[in-house]
Amino acid sequence: MLADKAFKGYENTSENWILSITSLSGALNGTTRTYFDGMQPEDEKSIMPVSLLQLCRIGVIVYEWLDIPWMKDYYNFGFDHFSMTWGKVGIRGLLDYLLGNAGPFASGDWILPDLTIQGSIKLNRHLRTFPQTYYFSYATKHTTKVTGFAVPSGIRGIHPLLFIRVLQMSQWRHPQDVSPPYKGYRDEDWWDNDGALNTISMTHPRLPVEHPSCLVIKDSDCQPLQPGIWYYKIIEGDHILFVVNRERAGVQFDLIYDSIFERCRKHVLRKTTTLPNQVPPE
């Protein structure tokens, strides 16, 4: 957005304002989890009539319509700009939302369509890897290969809520009567996962065009890092381990974030960047 000068009134923005980007368990290419939860594999917008997502959709609509202050203070879905409250739309408005005639789920302005593989491909068409920016991503997985198939890598160490989800995603099969989301698609490429995202999706932007990348086994093997390349490391853990729960991850959590900040400090020392309102040295 800085490169595209998307901020009105700030026409002097530049991609060079961003020195480095680090992704930790990031959905860079979508996830097959969306299809298990209820998104139609045929496209990136439709929800299956009977699915977990339908229940969640109804629950969110009623939640927003009731507009109970203490509940909204506890958690806000970010749909306030749709003005879905009972005081503004009444019973008729509620029916419109439930029937899919209005609201965020009718407009596509919510996260799940973007998290499908097809939706991510559309978003990534506008994504660029800039030659002056450093990139590093951590891809998590909690699966292992057994006779050519992916299975959860043990019960210990994985969150109980995610074990079934890891197992589901490791058995994913794209429907044979539906066109694959992209040329060269293979189910087995998407089997490794962390219970929420596929490992292949977290390494670097791959679809629709693969960006420059380098797998990191040992940090010393790729020093110094070069800008314009997505360096990525695959680490063992479920999706909650490093993103949410420091207590479960323990020392490994601290080491991950220490390495992120240390890498950023090295970039700052290695490269001088002109920031907004900063006069470059003569």
Results as ranks from 00 to 15, higher is better:
248 R>V: 09
187 D>Q: 06
107 S>V: 01
191 W>N: 10
124 N>D: 04
93 G>R: 03
22 T>I: 09
117 I>P: 12
265 R>L: 09
118 Q>E: 13
197 L>H: 01
148 G>Q: 14
48 M>D: 11
31 T>F: 03
55 L>K: 06
176 Q>M: 05
200 I>E: 11
159 H>R: 07
212 P>G: 13
229 I>K: 11
154 G>N: 07
149 F>M: 05
131 P>W: 03
197 L>M: 08
183 K>I: 05
109 D>V: 07
118 Q>W: 05
220 S>N: 11
101 N>V: 14
176 Q>Y: 06
61 I>E: 10
125 R>H: 10
143 T>C: 03
110 W>R: 09
104 P>S: 12
37 D>K: 15
245 N>M: 04
74 Y>W: 07
42 E>W: 01
158 I>W: 00
104 P>L: 13
4 D>P: 11
25 S>V: 12
69 P>Y: 08
258 D>I: 08
226 Q>K: 15
13 T>A: 12
146 V>F: 09
101 N>E: 11
80 D>F: 01
183 K>W: 00
270 R>W: 00
168 Q>W: 00
82 F>V: 01
258 D>G: 08
205 P>Y: 00
231 Y>S: 02
155 I>P: 03
43 D>C: 02
71 M>W: 14
125 R>M: 13
141 K>F: 06
213 S>Y: 15
30 G>I: 15
56 C>P: 03
120 S>K: 13
240 I>L: 07
119 G>M: 04
30 G>W: 02
48 M>A: 14
131 P>F: 07
75 Y>H: 15
229 I>N: 12
86 W>G: 05
139 A>G: 01
262 E>F: 06
155 I>Y: 14
87 G>L: 10
214 C>D: 05
67 D>N: 06
262 E>R: 11
38 G>N: 07
64 E>F: 04
268 V>C: 03
199 T>M: 14
142 H>V: 00
54 Q>E: 14
102 A>N: 13
227 P>G: 04
30 G>P: 11
171 Q>T: 15
1 M>H: 13
63 Y>R: 06
4 D>N: 15
193 N>W: 01
131 P>I: 04
195 G>C: 00
279 V>P: 00
95 L>G: 02
234 I>A: 04
144 T>C: 14
209 V>C: 05
71 M>K: 08
25 S>Q: 07
269 L>S: 09
250 G>I: 10
18 I>D: 05
249 A>I: 13
31 T>W: 09
67 D>F: 04
272 T>N: 14
136 F>Y: 08
198 N>V: 09
190 W>P: 06
155 I>E: 11
47 I>T: 02
212 P>V: 02
109 D>F: 02
156 R>I: 12
20 S>E: 10
150 A>G: 03
168 Q>M: 06
250 G>N: 01
153 S>F: 04
226 Q>H: 12
265 R>D: 13
51 S>W: 10
120 S>E: 08
185 Y>P: 04
9 G>W: 02
214 C>M: 13
20 S>V: 08
79 F>C: 03
171 Q>C: 08
42 E>P: 00
137 S>W: 01
33 R>W: 01
96 D>I: 06
59 G>D: 13
63 Y>D: 15
110 W>M: 08
3 A>F: 02
161 L>T: 07
97 Y>C: 04
13 T>G: 11
150 A>Q: 05
171 Q>M: 12
128 R>S: 12
182 Y>V: 08
51 S>G: 06
114 D>V: 02
218 K>F: 14
75 Y>G: 05
239 H>W: 00
